[in-house]
Design a protein around this nucleic acid. Structure first.
Lengths: 258, 258
DNA sequence: ATAATAGTGTCTCTCAGACAGTATGTG
DNA sequence: CACATACTGTCTGAGAGACACTATTAT
């Protein structure tokens, strides 16, 4: 019930109503922004976590994040908290909302609503712990043994962050199908082998090299050749940069989970 | 900055920390849940709106929604507010989070964070205005002329609800491609013509009847025949009910927007 | 030489688009 | 009867899966 609702026949103007309105009469709900930052290193999908320096869940690993400032946009808060705790800077186009978590009791301090963000980066940036973080590093998703992804003996993460990470991984896996997201995981310039290994790491399958090549090169705007080559363990490979396309028509579908 | 953060060397237990913690020291941020309820009537995609009885934006049309109670889950708040203001009851499986909107200044009362939900229903339920709503009815999406969907002269909706509705419509259009969502828009039992008209209304295109039939019947678990028929304007049609499948493999892709 | 990866060509099967034609109701 | 919608069958072309084969480097 809205105890401060202006009844429709009170006759006051909106300006008068707003002048009387007292936000502090509402019970306090905490609003935080957390970031699920994913990357691929050594052929494994990884997430950036911080070791909590403070209560609650002191010493446990958690997603970077924290309180949204009263005059700060949600996206900005996510970027700021990520930078403050881990030193990692993310461009806004690689940062998207994942989901909002607000079940009562999920934080022992108070009723807390957390807007979780999903971010992607290449392997260049090295995190540096600061602020609320005692340490920070990347964890391979498979090493977390998230029960939400069908595994057991999950690591004891802070709050409901195991669920949040699992939701983020599932979103990333789905987005590879119908967007050019995969190219956000690699440094420019990159080879088609680099790009293919992103798909293989995130989906945890192997792809047919020749078919993948045909598909990627046949999608206008996915990648653009630079004309240069890079050495590999075999024949040197053509280098590419990201093209302007953001969506894949038609998509690259994962094999059904049978 | 977390002014109440327990420094890592303070030595207190988590229980002691929580006993000292005072949530009321945080500035108040309002948390609301709004619902974008979509349906198809008379071959047009429609959204349920309410006319606001109270300030702010008194008299404007808005999405049903309101404040989340301090001990109430977010999903429950969305369902409750929808029922209170419009009398429409929605099963939880047809209710999913859309996005969270929290830009400072989007509500003149106070800093407001709104978790928007997306819901789908058939045409059976008739809304009844109550509570904070002076009136309630369905609007065809095309009649709103949302600038976010490429149209002009948009209706003057309350808050940023034009953006929220546009995001919801885009999500629904995308979900038709790779889920069995379309069957949530029709009453059981339904004909394949009914189901096809859902796709045609939401995507605002026409589909080839024979190919649509082949595709739907070729997807295991999408629909199940009841063995009965219903009269139409032509030959009577087989009736179907929803099958157990939730995802479509492979998807029914929209023609590219070229 | 072998190993390893990059890259080309091609066969086949699935499936979507297009459309012809049949079935069965109503006015 | 015409008309409308439901339903069946088939041709074709795009594209994915599979695989054979060639190219170019390192050791």
């Amino acid at each position: 019930m809205d105890s401060q609702a202006a009844s429709s026949d009170s006759g006051g103007t909106e300006a008068e109503f707003l002048a009387r309105y007292d936000p502090s009469l509402w019970p306090s709900i905490g609003v935080t922004a957390d970031v699920v930052l994913l990357t691929v290193r050594h052929g494994r999908l990884c997430v950036l976590l911080v070791e909590r320096a403070n209560h609650p869940h002191q010493g446990k690993w958690a997603l970077p994040g924290g309180f949204v400032d009263i005059e700060e946009d949600l996206d900005a808060a996510a970027q700021r908290e990520l930078a403050e705790e881990t030193g990692v800077a993310i461009e806004a186009n690689w940062l998207e909302q994942l989901k909002t978590y607000g079940t009562p009791g999920r934080d022992p301090r108070m009723r807390m609503v957390t807007i979780a963000y999903l971010a992607f980066t290449n392997v260049t940036q090295e995190p540096v712990a600061a602020d609320d973080a005692r340490a920070t590093r990347f964890f391979a998703i498979e090493d977390l043994h998230l029960p939400e992804l069908g595994l057991t003996d999950g690591m004891d993460l802070a709050f409901d962050h195991a669920t949040v990470i699992a939701d983020g991984v599932e979103r990333a896996r789905a987005k590879l199908e119908y967007t050019t997201l995969a190219s956000a995981f690699v440094d420019e310039p990159f080879t088609l082998g680099d790009l293919r290994r992103v798909y293989e790491s995130v989906w945890d399958i192997t792809l047919h090299e020749a078919n993948f090549r045909r598909k990627v090169l046949g999608t206008p705007g996915f990648v653009e050749p630079t004309g240069t080559t890079a050495p590999t363990d075999g024949r040197p490979a053509q280098l590419y940069r990201r093209g302007p396309a953001e969506r894949l028509h038609p998509p690259i579908l994962r094999p059904p989970p049978d």
